[in-house]
Simulated assay, not measured.
Amino acid sequence: MNVLIIYAHPNPKSFNHAVLEQVQKGLGESHHEVSVIDLYQEGFDPVLIFNEKRKRRDMKNDPEMARYRDLVKKADHYIFIYPVWWYGLPAILKGFFDRVFAAGFAYIYEGLVPKGLLTGKSAWVIYTIDSPGLFVRLVRGNVEWTVVKKAILQFCGIRPVKRMMLAGMKGSSARKRKRWLDTVYQQARQL
């Protein structure tokens, strides 16, 4: 299987980076073809610009995003790894969706009805969040998950989409983090 990892964390010594390493290790042992887009390391420009010269309708052909569109198109499965900040994804990852998952490439409208163009692909979303899981689900209503799953990935035709929320990062013990990393590794290996 061709797997594309989209990673969004600025600190190479972060727990998110440890998650990335475990995913890569597990996938490597399963002999998948793996590509990684490390948005911060690559200096990805998340700023979306369209004006008199750059029309929104032409974004699907933006030459700056051609490499990313090719990777997205070739992949059978996507893995997104990122922290949740302010109950949302990092701006750099939001900008990746804005610039790469453009109309005419990731989705179209048939009349007023949207149609995803990335069908036949699946995704695994792994994110860390400081808040406890119960608080995220009951008080915040999983807002950080709903947007990514439904408004972005499923909107573009990607199904199934599963998540691994590593909640309660703030104050989590070394033992708990080790268990999380072991689980990530095992699930990546079984993909």
Rank of each mutant, 00 (worst) to 15 (best):
M1I: 08
Y7K: 05
Y7H: 08
K13M: 06
K13G: 07
N16C: 11
L20K: 13
Q22W: 07
Q22V: 06
Q24V: 01
Q24S: 00
K25C: 06
L27Q: 10
H31C: 04
H32R: 09
E33D: 14
V34Q: 00
L39V: 11
E42H: 06
I49L: 12
F50T: 05
M59E: 05
N61H: 09
D62A: 04
E64S: 08
M65K: 11
A66L: 02
D70R: 15
V72F: 02
K74W: 02
A75C: 01
H77I: 00
Y82I: 04
P83V: 04
W85M: 05
F97M: 12
F101N: 07
A102C: 07
A103M: 14
F105L: 14
F105R: 13
A106S: 06
A106T: 02
V113D: 13
G116T: 01
T119R: 15
T119Y: 08
K121H: 09
T128M: 01
T128P: 08
D130F: 02
S131K: 14
L134Y: 10
V136M: 09
R137K: 15
V139Q: 12
V139S: 13
V148P: 10
K149C: 08
A151F: 12
L153H: 02
C156I: 06
V161L: 11
G168Y: 00
M169F: 01
K170Q: 08
S172A: 13
R179K: 15
W180I: 02
L181N: 09
D182Q: 15
R189P: 12
